[in-house]
Design a protein around this nucleic acid. Structure first.
Lengths: 328, 328
DNA sequence: ATGAAAGCGCTAACAC
DNA sequence: GTGTTAGCGCTTTCAT
């Protein structure tokens, strides 16, 4: 930067200003600086800038795993929107463990991220507390809560469970099962399902929760387990489409007609849901949009701070949609 | 850090050392420092550390998009391996554009990443040159080349095309088509296919390249296009499984029996390939392992530098595998 | 084994 | 509009 300043015949600050606040510099010097930068191939050290300005233009995001395309899609939207605004994405994977998430949050805080995106609303207590106290812009995604750390943008996993229960009941099913993952948001969907069913005086047959990542084989195995538990079973809600496809497979193998003998509903609407035979009825959530929206909220917070605006906790519900196909 | 030093009754340097080089500090002071840190809830500012030490412990990675689960899987492996070694992943999306990639490389260099992972071996000339000159650890993935920037770990897209051609020929097909994306690695697979076929005195019918992201509908539409171009078509190689499934759909719609009337081969072995009916014969590449391996190479480079070892360009071929299912 | 001094490369106040 | 003066919070030498 020293060199650029000399080359352009100005002081270092002026170079800095020409880069960060172009409008605070006369067009002439701005041009001179640009030219010097070009000539010297100067690349500003953003690390030094971050240290001095206390703004890193980095957003940290933590998802359980990128292997699940719904999270990957959300990160795609997040990275794209953030990138367009000149922010960088630092990504971490929690493996569905709150303590691993806590470790990543620490690391990100140490790196002075300007904001954070966390998956879900359940975190280590220390994390919630720290983040609240720091007043760091934080967006929780993929679920809802009345008491977000800062802002939450997602959908209600409990309502999804209830809606699927309602749908299945309406189809005339009474013996309903659940195949889910060993994971808090899956539990909530099950909870919603159970609530609604209990209200009708019905129970729900639940398979042993699957340790992520879910596979098609897990889905098949779980359906078999469910059938052993309750041979009368008429319908099953699978906590994700992968398990749903597995359940479909097991039905096929056993000669069960879908949906007549067994109705199957999935979750997340992967491409596979539309492509399998019979096509899988599922719940669609807008993963990518979720990421975009999370980015927008962060960006707004980060600029809002500049305009002395103090934002308060907010709950943004993006909703969901039952996609009716052939399987239920 | 000042506070921690005071609390522990030592100098700031000692705190720094206790954190970064624990073995250079007596066990007693180390414990005192740890205690003080605990008591004060001190979180080191890694930005400042990076600035001072010129090592950021950040790796930048650029993929075309995270929406394609093969890239997401690779990033999953990368992030996991890197995270375990105390490195953070900064992620960017190029949207399949070399100039967008170049912009991200600039941004990452400005952030002083310790290493870089790029998708593919085709980049803006300025990028290659810059990176080479900087001697920054760089791993190119998802393809191979004789002339990598630094190290390349992937598979040969050309050989994949040739292998699929060989497979299809062996199945007895002579009229072969290609459905691909508007993208350099897809082109290479087509190139390989064409080479092998040309060697047999055969041609290949190619559909209009699909602008990413590919959809199932794109695949269906492309198969229709191919059939219009060449009604005798016996087999088609689709540049990814999504297109393959689309092709399968179109065959079904037209009452074409697969593989008797039309053989279909996909690429990447998504879960959907095994789940659709008929199951899709495809080419499997180890996406996640690719990411892990890329991370290992970087880590080795980064430590190797410490041991004064100067590594030279390397080509690591992870190969591929044709997964024979029902569709071809 | 520990400390003192000197930056890392930039930005934020203030002056001019 | 531009320059001057101080740091940002840490890690290096190099002494001790």
């Amino acid at each position: 930067m020293e060199d650029v300043a000399r080359e352009a015949g100005v002081a270092r600050v002026t170079v800095s200003r020409a880069l960060s606040h172009p409008d605070k510099v006369s067009p002439a010097t701005r041009a001179a600086v640009r030219a010097a930068i070009e000539r010297l191939g100067y690349v500003p050290n953003l690390t030094a800038g971050s240290l001095a300005s206390k703004r890193s233009r980095i957003i940290g995001a933590i998802v359980p795993t990128l292997c699940n395309s719904w999270f990957a899609d959300a990160m795609d939207g997040l990275a794209e929107t953030l990138g367009a605004a000149g922010y960088q994405l630092m990504l971490g994977q929690s493996g569905y463990h709150v303590d691993q998430e806590a470790g990543l949050v620490d690391a990100f805080l140490g790196r002075k991220v300007d904001g954070l995106v966390l998956t879900g609303v359940v975190h280590a207590p220390s994390v919630r507390e720290r983040l609240r106290r720091l007043r760091l812009p934080v967006v929780e995604i993929w679920d809802l809560t009345d008491d977000p750390i800062d802002t939450v943008v997602g959908f209600s996993n409990i309502l999804i469970g209830e809606a699927v229960a309602g749908y299945l009941l309406q189809c005339g099913h009474r013996q309903i099962g659940f195949i889910g993952a060993e994971e808090v948001r899956s539990d909530k969907r099950m909870q919603g399902l159970r609530q609604r069913l209990t209200a009708e005086g019905l129970g729900v047959t639940a398979a042993t929760p699957i340790t992520p990542p879910s596979t098609i084989e897990d889905g098949a195995r779980s359906l078999a387990e469910l059938l052993a538990l309750n041979p009368q079973l008429q319908a099953v809600f699978c906590s994700n489409d992968t398990l749903g496809v597995g359940a479909l497979f097991e039905c096929h193998r056993r000669g069960l007609r879908v949906p007549q003998d067994m109705a199957v509903v999935g979750f997340s609407d992967l491409a596979i849901a539309a492509a399998c035979v019979p096509a899988l009825t599922t719940v669609r959530v807008q993963s990518r949009e979720l990421g975009c929206r999370a980015a927008q909220v962060l960006l707004q917070r980060l600029n809002g701070a500049a305009t002395a605006e103090v934002p308060h906790p907010e709950v943004i519900d993006l909703g969901f949609q039952i996609i009716e196909r052939e399987s239920a």
